[in-house]
Design a protein around this nucleic acid. Structure first.
Lengths: 231, 231
DNA sequence: CGTTCTTTTGAGACAGCTCAATTTACGTGG
DNA sequence: CCACGTAAATTGAGCTGTCTCAAAAGAACG
């Protein structure tokens, strides 16, 4: 199976490259598969490669010494994993795990940096990606320090919907196996509180959720909660 | 007064440049002053410039619609301000204010990007800086979701000590006007809780604090609290 | 030496956590 | 297709860390 050129072309990391550059990029890619649940790398690992997800979902997270997991990002098709360590030669600050059966393309970090020297556009793309992460993280810090759980949960769902949402007849499906526990780890709360809030929203007709599955029936009402516009 | 070449040479943004590159950089710099309390820019502003602090302290923060302030970073001499908007042409996600009388060097964003094209080292430096911020923000998110206030406050002080600490006979002085309110805004708590915890540490001989002033007498004990090694 | 801002302290409330027990949903193998 | 085992989700009850609000004391500064 040849690397999916069209997907790569539209990837944040490789967008805007001319055809010859794209060919060099693809020439050095290696494909691989990562079954659901498998770890791609651990935090503090030195990484020699960077990846782009072509199918499935890869979760970036940290574990605390006490065993709590914090989910920092979920990368879907077109998104890169391990970019920062590949660029800076520092160990990875996060761990990565497939939450669905996934396919990836990999480049050797070294080769990628060589490509970057030849194609400055890659550098600008990398900066844009890191910048986007910085903005998201700053927002989360602000939310965690100033907002209550319900608002944070609403924001988490809206962020997921924007990134991985899929229109269905019942509403916007978060297209990802998503337990209450996962939701808690993304919102800074506990499984139990997340469950209670989801239940409340279910009763209010805002969401429709099941086992590891959430559909947003009324995104508008969720925004209302996230922005605290309700009264 | 000529731009301080030596300081610029050791700045994370401009380090590793050869002398001719450094001369071009300095040629385009414009100096300015920013008295304590003054705003450099607001969040959502489109910025046409980027700055490097040469003296004083510049605080990066966000304000919530409810009026809560969250401090995301404090830039001291050698550190850059407004880098991300300058690189990506997007509005600034944060506001910036001098917390002491400060001096800055400014470059037009446009000029800086031109310099970057001529000197790839600048691009790598920028990436390293953004990467460092990402790591710090990820750590803070993990702390905010899994740790209690006392540990977070300890970490905040240790981070400040590392960045802006000054050895004195009594201990490590956080060299910055730092109110309980500010500390709370950096740690994700309230003025009152921060005050109580500081008081406790004062009684335990760990810190020695006064009006807008903190000295760490026993960094070791603070680490013990931050890492929850105490018993 | 009065004004203003910071810090401290008390008292009470409550959002959210913890722990335990039960119910529900799903997948598997007989 | 049903029964069983396992993991997710729900729900209750009680606790507590932290916030809120109010008031007073302390520090800086003209």
């Amino acid at each position: 199976m040849p690397p999916p050129t069209d997907l790569i072309r539209q990837t944040p990391l490789f967008r805007g490259l001319d055809d010859s550059a794209l060919r060099s990029v693809i020439a050095e890619a290696r494909g691989s598969r990562l079954p659901a649940g498998n770890i791609l790398f651990h935090q503090n690992d030195a990484l020699a490669r960077l990846w782009v997800v072509t199918a499935g979902r890869v979760q970036l997270f940290q574990l605390t010494p006490e065993g709590h997991q914090v989910i920092l990002h979920i990368a879907g098709p077109g998104q890169e994993v391990g970019l920062l360590p590949a660029l800076t030669d520092a160990p990875s600050p996060v761990s990565a795990r497939a939450v669905e059966d996934s396919s990836l393309l990999a480049w050797r970090a070294e080769d990628f940096r060589a490509l970057m020297r030849g194609h400055p556009q890659l550098g600008f793309n990398a900066i844009a990606i890191l910048g986007e992460h910085i903005r998201l993280y700053q927002d989360r810090i602000r939310e965690l320090t100033t907002e209550r759980v319900e608002r944070r949960l609403a924001r988490t769902l809206l962020r997921l919907a924007k990134q991985l949402g899929k229109r269905t007849p019942e509403g916007v499906l978060i297209d990802l196996p998503l337990s209450r526990q996962n939701l808690a780890e993304m919102s800074g709360t506990t499984l139990y509180t997340a469950s209670r809030i989801l239940r409340g929203w279910e009763d209010a007709g805002i969401v429709s959720s099941g086992r590891e599955r959430v559909v947003i029936r009324s995104p508008h009402k969720l925004v209302t909660i996230a922005e605290d516009l309700q009264r």
